[in-house]
Design a protein around this nucleic acid. Structure first.
Lengths: 205, 205
DNA sequence: GCGGTATTTGACCGCCTAGTCAAAACAACT
DNA sequence: AGTTGTTTTGACTAGGCGGTCAAATACCGC
């Protein structure tokens, strides 16, 4: 009963789009509404606050990406290939964003996380949650790689975190310099970072 | 003639301090003034705008760090040791900030850069300039290391950029999670990333 | 001590922002 | 077609923000 609407989804999309392009503080609720073709009154029908919208948008975005990540990180794919494919995905996404807007977008998790982690506990918690999901994908690939003797078997969880930090750092640097070149070469650094750079013969320790 | 004052310096310090703690947008001119013990009218005597203050603060901060970096990256120090010492400096700074405020500060260049690079060309330019200075320190150390056969001699400039991205990524991750542990272990990842992780015998190519 | 200049002060402004609300419109289900 | 309740609308508010200004003040060099 009652009426149905796509307004909520449009608001979520607009939020990710606009907040990635500039920042949380810069993007006004009015701008989000306009971009989504929604009046302000409706906004507050669907979301209790701007912060609430941001949290929901991050969640929705993460859910949307899930299937793609599950396929990239499928256990049926050789572990180092998963990481290579992930790098390729990053490059594709950044390149696509650049073509569309003229700007390297970077990663909304890192942008929002950096900006908001000291001001809004809920946004901070959601960003952390989303980052940890990504870390899990990486950790699994790293463990599988180590198990196959493709890299040392030490500190796999730390390596996953470091690798994620590297990815996010590269994306952010690309955003700041509006330059994709470091992203393009990210794969090589990624493999080096976890110790799988040159075809390593890892003796069973 | 006229009067002398430390107000300008106090404003610069307050700006870095507060903008690192939260973000550019969150920190109001009033807050900066209060923290610096300066009235608003004086603020606009020294700076033409909030943006102008931010640019000047980044510049001043960079100049202040210069001597320390010059000593860490002195050509008299073995090249890989320079990088290790740089990592140690990062950890010290982050730890000190954490003790003082209860929060891992991260890097103001990356925080401000991410937030402002799409809105304020001057801030963006200054951030880029400061990041490039840091990249130069790293590039020099990397070239010297390669020259000594401590790592492959390929793509040294790209490696410097990647290494910087890694550092910034780790610092930002530490900020978001308010957790120093990844910073503590940064040195290992840094050396791996540039291909100097395990004592590498690099054949003269 | 005095002139001149850099600094300090605090009241002021206009704009923009997140958030509110009550009434109207309309789709879904019966 | 009628009922129900979700969605839509647009005008509204209160507070906070960056920035302004003219007058007062105090230090430096002489």
């Amino acid at each position: 009963m009652g009426r149905t609407s796509t307004a909520r989804k449009r608001l979520l999309d607009a939020a990710i789009e606009l907040m990635t392009e500039t920042s949380y503080a810069t993007v006004t609720v009015d701008a989000i509404c306009e971009h989504a073709g929604v009046k302000k009154g409706s906004f507050y029908h669907f979301f209790s606050s701007k912060s609430d919208l941001a949290v929901s948008a991050l969640e929705a975005d993460t859910q949307e990406r899930r299937a793609r990540l599950d396929s990239i990180f499928s256990p049926t794919v050789p572990p180092l290939q998963r990481i290579r494919n992930y790098c390729a995905l990053f490059y594709e996404k950044q390149k696509e964003g650049f073509s569309r807007t003229g700007h390297v977008p970077g990663c909304p998790l890192f942008s929002l996380g950096t900006e908001m982690c000291r001001q809004d506990p809920q946004i901070r918690a959601k960003v952390q949650e989303c980052l940890e999901i990504r870390a899990k994908y990486l950790a699994s690939a790293i463990r599988d790689a180590a198990d196959e003797g493709l890299m040392p078997k030490t500190d796999t969880d730390l390596k996953a975190k470091s690798l994620l930090a590297y990815f996010e750092g590269v994306l952010t640097q690309a955003r700041i310099h509006n330059d994709l070149s470091v992203v393009r070469e990210m794969e090589h650094g990624a493999l080096e970072l976890i110790g799988a750079g040159r075809a390593v013969a890892v003796a069973a320790a």
